[in-house]
Amino acid sequence: MDNSTGERTPLVIAAEINMITCQTKKILLAGAIEIGCRLQEAKALVKHGEWGKWLESVSYSQKTAERLIKLYQEYGPNFSDGLDTSKSTSMSNMTYTQALLLLGLPAEEREEFIEQNDVGGMTTKKLQQALQENQALKKGLETIDSTISELKNEQAKAASMPTNPENVKAEAPSAGQPALPTHNLKTEYDPDAHIKYVEKCDTCCKTIADTFFNLTTALTNLAHIDPNLKEEKRKEANRLIEYMAETIKEWPPPKKPLRFNS
């Protein structure tokens, strides 16, 4: 090694070791993919029931062999060893461990994640954290969509129900005023009914608070991934929150004179 080009310091040596380690891990991934390719080929040729015995000849367990085959199936077509510049190099910058961690994502999500993140420059810990945040974002968006869908369904059901179950017609709302959802409730004769409804209110408020936390977490993560999609979801959630706020201000609606059927 020629040391005349610069001063040899512990910092320089550490940087060189880290670079060599990273390069070694990338070479390991390339080799693993090549081995996975050949294992898949061999598995198709080996007679049924003899796969485990054949693997003994290459000193691989079935679990390891299946993992290597999976690496080839998921990364092989798009993997570049750095020599072929016609292929995307985003995957070739990954290490073996990074590639294994990313197998937990569906193919489409994985490609998007790799494009949006410098996976090759992440430590294992940072990659694991990023993947956890990605799952939290996905779960948060699913929660938002599910909550909005449920509320829309409840509103549609309420709008289709008669105002009074005893064939009584209430006055129609003023023109231009949206009708609030109605609840056909039976008279409570239980003197302790208030306890049940106070507990129900407390439970619902906690659910709303938890869901709102998930919503803000999802929007925060989405802001870093796709600002336009974040804004779309924020506006959608804001409309829902405004509707809920306006509704709760006057809920339950004031009683109005009833007009009986003649």
Rank of each mutant, 00 (worst) to 15 (best):
Q62F: 04
Y96Q: 06
A44L: 08
E41S: 11
G36A: 10
S61L: 04
Q23A: 09
E50C: 13
G82S: 06
C37R: 14
E41G: 08
N78Y: 09
A32C: 11
S92D: 01
Q128L: 03
G49L: 02
I144W: 03
A99Q: 05
Y72S: 09
V119S: 02
T89S: 08
Q116G: 08
M91V: 03
A42M: 12
I69P: 00
C22I: 03
S90Q: 12
A32L: 04
V119A: 05
G121S: 09
L28K: 12
S59R: 14
Y60R: 07
V46K: 01
G36D: 07
E66W: 05
L68Q: 04
T95A: 00
K25C: 07
K70P: 01
S90L: 13
E34H: 11
E142P: 00
S88W: 01
T143E: 10
V46T: 15
L28D: 14
K53R: 14
K126M: 13
R38H: 14
A32P: 02
N134M: 11
S57P: 00
N93A: 06
K125H: 06
E74N: 07
D81C: 12
Y75F: 09
A32Y: 06
R38P: 02
T64W: 01
W54V: 11
K138M: 15
T97Y: 06
L141E: 11
T143M: 05
T123A: 08
P106H: 11
G104F: 07
E115A: 14
N117W: 06
K53P: 07
I114C: 06
K47I: 12
Q73E: 15
E66K: 13
Y60S: 07
T24V: 02
L100R: 06
L131Q: 02
L100C: 12
F113V: 04
E111C: 04
A65G: 04
N78V: 10
L29I: 03
E115Q: 14
S86E: 10
L39M: 07
D84E: 12
D118V: 01
I69Q: 10
L45V: 13
K87Y: 02
C37H: 14
T143V: 09
K63G: 13
Q98G: 00
R67K: 13
M94T: 00
S90H: 09
V46G: 05
T124S: 05
L55H: 03
G76H: 06
K25E: 15
I35N: 08
K126P: 00
D84Y: 05
